[in-house]
Write a protein that binds this DNA or RNA. Structure first.
Lengths: 99, 99
DNA sequence: AACCGTCCAGGGTACAAGCGC
DNA sequence: TGCGCTTGTACCCTGGACGGT
């Protein structure tokens, strides 16, 4: 590569063309700032870790409501079942996480 | 990381025509597909990089078991001590990797 | 062409802080 | 208060891409 990527340096993003929420866009699961692609989906570090732990330990969660909880940055820890469901539907791939 | 390794046994026949993607044979350390000779031994990119990093940074590893771990494509990352040991016994040469 | 070097996306581990019991 | 588990951040390691000689 020729030019280094300058991490953390942001310019006026108000008018930037691909001015997603941050350079990597938003987490497909919770909408937080994504830190890159993880297990097949652009996601934040929180969802990355949650998915890895859940898959690796074969966790089975239960939803206390109707399995349709809203998953965003603030509420993502309120329902593990729905968060993991959204991880899979967000194209996080089980096969890409070594158990 | 997608190649199937057949048995580590490669036909070194003379029927080199076109489907010869295995010209370099198997990695002497882990049996993965070798990409050429690196630091004195026919090896894959993974063992090439691992050896370079280990030698250059003078890494000292410890084996959690009996220093006789199986090193193959799947398990090579599970014991750095045994992987590096096998790099040396596989004739990777320290002198050929500038520190 | 063969081999050595760097770069870096993405997967890994470690651990402090937080939470429930 | 302690104990154990979970979360999310920080950082390390791996290995493929690719340039240089």
């Amino acid at each position: 590569m020729t030019d280094k990527l300058v991490n953390g340096v942001k310019q006026a993003e108000s008018s930037s063309k691909s001015g997603d929420d941050g350079e990597n866009g938003a987490c497909l699961i919770c909408g937080d700032k994504a830190t890159g692609k993880h297990y097949g989906a652009s996601s934040c570090d929180g969802c990355k870790g949650f998915f890895r732990r859940s898959v690796r330990k074969n966790h089975v969660y239960a939803c206390r409501f109707q399995r349709a909880c809203v998953i965003n940055k603030d509420k993502r820890n309120q329902c593990r079942y729905c968060r993991l469901r959204k991880c899979f539907s967000g194209r996080h791939e089980e096969g890409s996480c070594s158990k």
